[in-house]
Design a protein around this nucleic acid. Structure first.
Lengths: 115, 115
DNA sequence: TACACCTGTAATAATATTATTACAGGTGTT
DNA sequence: AACACCTGTAATAATATTATTACAGGTGTA
């Protein structure tokens, strides 16, 4: 296994939204910059921005800030290559490394879990 | 493909919660009835009940109301056998049948989508 | 300078999800 | 009857997510 429970949870949270599923589908065509994609799917840029960040945090898309030929800053997003096989076994395994996010910074330093 | 976009969305929504992931992991041992599982994972029964319903709606667990030997009604939940391979391709395909839930009952009867 | 494009973010409102509490009703046993 | 178990659900509170609006700042071109 190479994904922790919390990482897997973030993936599910990222995919548990119709807009974000559509964003993934759209980015499969080609990479796009934020304003471009916002026009395409008729969504306000700040909102799309938030959705893209959620996808990026989950590792499903990758954002890169580039400078276009005419000097404008363009934030391009492209799909990451992901491939999760969701089965009861897989989830059970991941749950072993699923910890309370609330306590994340609060808990005492421990003997390194599964790094 | 044998899952619609909205069905897939429900699966993701169901799995986008740490409790529900733990429930799935726990049910992998064996089927359990609600009160039993509630004690095990230290969760109030009404709350667990709600989580189980979300999992059931998504098709990830199956609930069966049975009568125990001593006549008590017992609601057993067991894992469904699911196996989703989550890739950009899969999501893109599913998005083709992803519709606004808000309009679900509002829209005019159409020429049968992909049944 | 004004305009048409871009990014990034903060404050707020609207909605949805999660969680609690309190019920009502059903067994069989003491 | 009182008790110890079960299921099912409604009303409400607490939180988290989603969405909007309004900014500030950066390009190059007319």
């Amino acid at each position: 296994m190479d994904v922790t429970g919390n990482e897997l949870l973030q993936v599910f949270e990222a995919l548990a939204n119709p807009h974000r599923l559509r964003i993934v589908a759209s980015l499969r065509e080609k990479r796009k910059y934020v304003s471009e994609l916002a026009r395409e799917i008729k969504m306000s840029r700040p909102l799309l921005y938030m959705h893209l960040q959620r996808l990026e945090t989950a590792g499903l898309v990758i954002g890169k800030l580039e400078l276009s030929d005419d000097g404008k800053a363009m934030k391009y997003f492209e799909l990451a290559e992901f491939d999760y096989r969701i089965t009861p076994e897989f989830i059970t395994e991941a749950v072993r490394t699923l910890h309370d996010k609330a306590a994340e910074g609060t808990e005492a330093p421990h003997t390194k879990e599964e790094n």
